[in-house]
Design a protein around this nucleic acid. Sequence first.
DNA 1: ACTCGACTTTAGACAATGTCTAATATCAGA
DNA 2: TCTGATATTAGACATTGTCTAAAGTCGAGT
Lengths: 143, 143
Amino acid sequence: MMKRITSRLEAEELLKTRGVQPTSQRVEVLYRLHASQRHLAAEDLHECLNEEFTRVSRATVYNTLNLLKSYGLVGAVLVDAGRILYDANTEPHYHMYDVETGELTDIGCGVLPPEALPGIPDDRLMCGVDVIIKVSKKRSEHH
Amino acid sequence: MMKRITSRLEAEELLKTRGVQPTSQRVEVLYRLHASQRHLAAEDLHECLNEEFTRVSRATVYNTLNLLKSYGLVGAVLVDAGRILYDANTEPHYHMYDVETGELTDIGCGVLPPEALPGIPDDRLMCGVDVIIKVSKKRSEHH
DNA sequence: ACTCGACTTTAGACAATGTCTAATATCAGA
DNA sequence: TCTGATATTAGACATTGTCTAAAGTCGAGT
């Protein structure tokens, strides 16, 4: 089970143990993402950081999210064109996306462990699996 | 097994049978996507259409792809931020994405039928499943 | 063939998202 | 405290996709 970060201090510790310089901006981004309990876009996070006391530039939010992602400290989900949502949950899991509301929900992958996925060529290493199950409340418009 | 379109005439027939007005632009877009045998971005398609005799505007390429997608005549895959790749293969299938080269390959979903996916709430209808298996040749940079 | 109305295409403006650059600021180690 | 390496910043830039208003095309009914 993943440790949930509940304070800036814990975020700082986590960064240190991974060998990432725990600057105040990085700590803040990581902490806020955990605190929000939701999936956030970079712009959401930028906005949310700057309505409080903190002041973090747009570029830093983007850079930091890319950095955290490259260290596996956050997850990224592509739902629509030109929109990445970030996810504090770094356990392997899948997503359910409501195409009407835009709501994105985590789904455990118990029934469908990544190992069960179709085989990949021998010369490649799997470095991630994205599963997005799209749902809606209505039937699609064209039958 | 899906019928592969090999001529503009077949593209036109397909559009007609689905009740979509088979304009020359739509026929051309649908035909070219099948002819290319690859996954193409809207811009690729726009470029490729206009180096030949045909002349199709950017807006029409985007509109047409959205239209075809809403009728299930083409598939769309999100691989990177702000980049949709379109796919002539409308059979249920998954994708393998090489994060280094950007190469996107179809993978059958025989081993992993969509029905095997985690349950979704009763009040929602599943309207699609995206599975992207990310692979690379090297280990990721941060161990 | 003609006309009308509905649909389609078009060019270009616009919007949203993310990246890059050069200057400045900050940090860690000597 | 110094110094080099690293991080942050503002703003320009690039890319992708959407919107709008005008012009073009299609087809049914006459």
